[in-house]
Amino acid sequence: MRYAMAIDTLKCVGCSDCVVACQTENNVPIGYCRDWVVEVTEGTYPQLALENRSERCCHCENAACVRCCPTGASHKEEGGIVVVTHEKCIGCAACIQSCPYDARYTHPDGYVDKCTFCLHRVNEGLKPACVSVCPTKCMYFGDLDNPESEISKVLKNRKWKLLIPEAGTDPKLYFLV
């Protein structure tokens, strides 16, 4: 099982609902976030293109953060979901330094925090909070190893890109273009 997420940039309107839903679902303190929206404009008026992307931890196959964690707090759960065990984390922030996506932050309580793909929800058969709330239904989540999963199908049928593929981390966050 390999969990992954895909975001359809053709549908995303950049509303940031994913950000608020994550905050309220996961008790992320105000002023911090596990996911965020990036807006990129290209061209000059009136020849313009705009891309909105909801970004978060890429739950990399080759996760630099897991390798560099001195205590084993950063680890992989079943399905490749990268998680930080708060109790084991000493807040050294080596993982924050190693992450090419800047996906982690230090929680005011001292540990490092990040997106978990809402593992607690996934374990109950639910989708991550961001995917469930998205008004444009631009987000897909599921198992890449299952060819019948929605995400496998959408990645098969659509063009997609990865963020900073040259980092060699083999990210599991896809952007449909």
Binding site: C15, S16, D17, V19, V20, A21, T24, E25, S132, V133, C134, P135, K137
Partner: peptide, 25 residues
């Protein structure tokens, strides 16, 4: 209050609140 989520049966939102509704707390 922990969070607010949409009602699946509601034709105004089809179970998906917008950022303001989610942030209504």
């Amino acid at each position: 209050i922990q969070k607010i989520t949409g009602n699946d049966k509601d034709p105004h939102c089809n179970g998906r609140l917008c950022p303001r509704g989610t942030g209504g707390i």
